[in-house]
């Protein structure tokens, strides 16, 4: 991974510069990956086939490949950005929606919607999921405020425990009502079912990510703490609430449409932080590009490892992500921070 290659050159000087050329290079790589993604899959499609105009090929391409690739890009961008915003809000590098109970709460929300209001259309389920995600995240932030010792490692541990409790309750009810199988489709992110007509909701998260970018400075300021924020004349509560809504909505939509993709929102922002620091306005384009690229690479990998079978992207990201998470934890703990 790029992560490991980056480690030796820990920035010392002159690292405030945005390095636009590198960003373009990274963006170009993601575009190439996206092109590759369009032509990897069970049915064999080559660019030449598209040009000859075989209607079947074109159909598969437009109905399955293009939506899938777009979905991967949108989800990758939005989840990475939401992870970053959450890290600023919790003032801790080691949290992200899937380690603080946000994603678990969203899953609980869909289960409740499915059980209580079986006929609800997907938008309704999403709304319920979003409300649950907000409640779960707010609970986490409320718990954080009550922890006297804000040790760097205690914070993610609290989140993981909270997520564990929520998810075990969810699993219990899913088991009781024979919905375990359905539950799995939300708990493990998978892009394989995303054809035209099923992925479009993800444009919502793209819009939310743009809102996050536009309010970028507010989140950086909030990341410096309540007193700092107040000193600069910003309403801390309101900024936190805005972040809470953004993060919860993004998580809920992604869980409903794709399923959970753990660790993504953790790894990407941490890498970018090492690269260029945390000034949100500068970091967000990087986070978007690297987030999209990382998920895309994992999704392509999942498609070719056991070709023609697919391994869900959630599994691949979890495996790579958990390893990187441990690396970052060990590093972060020995570092001066």
């Amino acid at each position: 991974m790029a992560a490991l290659a980056l480690r030796p050159q820990r920035p010392t000087q002159q690292h405030g510069s945005p390095r636009p050329a590198l960003l373009c290079l990274a963006g170009g790589t993601v575009l190439l990956l996206a092109l590759l993604s369009l032509f990897v899959g069970v049915s064999d499609i080559s660019p030449a086939d598209l040009l000859t105009g075989d209607p079947d090929v074109r159909q598969t391409f437009l109905v399955s490949r293009v939506p899938r690739t777009l979905a991967v890009l949108l989800a990758g961008i939005a989840l990475s950005i939401s992870g970053f915003i959450l890290q600023l809000m919790a003032r801790n590098r080691f949290v992200e929606p899937s380690t603080v109970g946000t994603a678990e709460s969203a899953t609980a929300g869909i289960l409740v919607a499915t059980l209580v209001l079986p006929g609800t259309p997907i938008l309704g389920k999403m709304l319920v999921a979003a409300l649950f995600a907000m409640a779960g995240t707010a609970l986490f932030l409320a718990v954080l405020r009550r922890i006297p010792l804000r040790n760097t490692l205690i914070v993610p541990l609290v989140g993981i425990m909270l997520g564990g409790v929520i998810s075990s309750v969810t699993t219990f009810f899913a088991y009781r009502f024979d919905l375990l199988q359905t539950l799995n489709t939300w708990m493990i992110g998978d892009f394989s079912g995303l054809v035209r007509g099923r992925y479009e909701l993800l444009w919502i998260v793209a819009a939310l990510a743009v809102v996050g970018y536009l309010c970028a400075d507010r989140f950086t300021v909030a990341g410096m703490g309540e007193e700092f924020t107040t000193n600069l004349g910003l309403d801390y509560r309101r900024t936190m609430n805005l972040g809470l809504v953004l993060v919860s909505l993004i998580s809920a939509v992604v869980v409903v449409v794709v399923g959970a993709i753990p660790f993504l929102g953790l790894i990407v922002p941490n890498l970018v932080s090492l690269l260029i620091g945390d000034n949100v306005r500068r970091a967000v384009p990087w986070i978007a590009v690297l987030g999209a690229g990382f998920v895309l690479a994992c999704d392509i990998l999942g498609r070719i490892i056991r070709f023609p079978f697919e391994i869900p992207v959630g599994v691949i990201v979890s495996v790579i992500g958990s390893v990187l998470f441990i690396v970052l934890l060990v590093r972060g703990n020995t570092g001066a921070r």
């Binding site: 690292h15 405030g16 600023l88 003032r91 801790n92 590098r93 950086t220 990341g223 410096m224 932080s273 620091g277 945390d278 000034n279 921070r337």
Partner: peptide
Amino acid sequence: TVRLSVRD
């Protein structure tokens, strides 16, 4: 906890 340059 935010990583900022002095100028930022």
